[in-house]
């Protein structure tokens, strides 16, 4: 089974990125073989809908579980529609969270953990009026 972890860099020793839709990399790991593939997240700089685009990418790669810090409402809907299990609140390195997941120490979530635009950073909200 393939699982996907949002990461701040492109290796198994990278830290888990707390943002799902706007993380720089996805690391897709085959749990049986521990072979992994690094996918740059093209959605990280999207104007809007980053979470949705990110789900599209990892769904096309065949991931069945996503491990991240937080997911917003749109990504949550898309992940649910794609039948991808969502694990939030993860921290540490990608390798550590995968081991934890294998041992059954990480739990799935059944609701979005943050509101929209969480990963956009202060001052970049595109709905804000420019006062």
């Amino acid at each position: 089974m393939k699982i996907c972890v949002s990461a701040t860099a492109d290796s198994l020793d990278a830290q888990v990125d707390p943002r799902f839709g706007r993380c720089p990399y996805f690391i897709i790991i085959d749990l049986e073989t521990m072979q992994f593939e690094v996918i740059p997240n093209l959605a990280s700089g999207a104007m809007g809908g980053a979470g949705i685009q990110a789900v599209q990418t990892i769904a096309n790669k065949g991931a069945k579980v996503v491990i991240t810090g937080n997911v917003g409402p749109n990504a949550f809907q898309a992940l649910s529609a794609a039948g991808i299990k969502i694990v939030t609140g993860a921290h540490g390195t990608v390798r550590e969270v995968v081991e934890k997941y294998k041992r059954g120490e990480l739990k799935g979530t059944s609701a979005p953990t943050v509101g929209g635009h969480f990963g956009m950073g202060g001052g970049r909200g595109w709905r804000q009026r420019p006062w």
């Binding site: 999207a46 809908g49 949705i52 769904a59 898309a78 529609a81 794609a82 039948g83």
Partner: peptide, 25 residues
């Protein structure tokens, strides 16, 4: 999935069994 990859605003998500449309995007 052609519609989703065309959409520059990520307003369409195409899963294997389900399609989601986000009108606000």
């Amino acid at each position: 999935g052609k519609c989703a990859s065309f959409c520059q605003y990520n307003a369409i998500f195409v899963g294997y069994k389900k399609v989601l449309i986000f009108p606000e995007l």
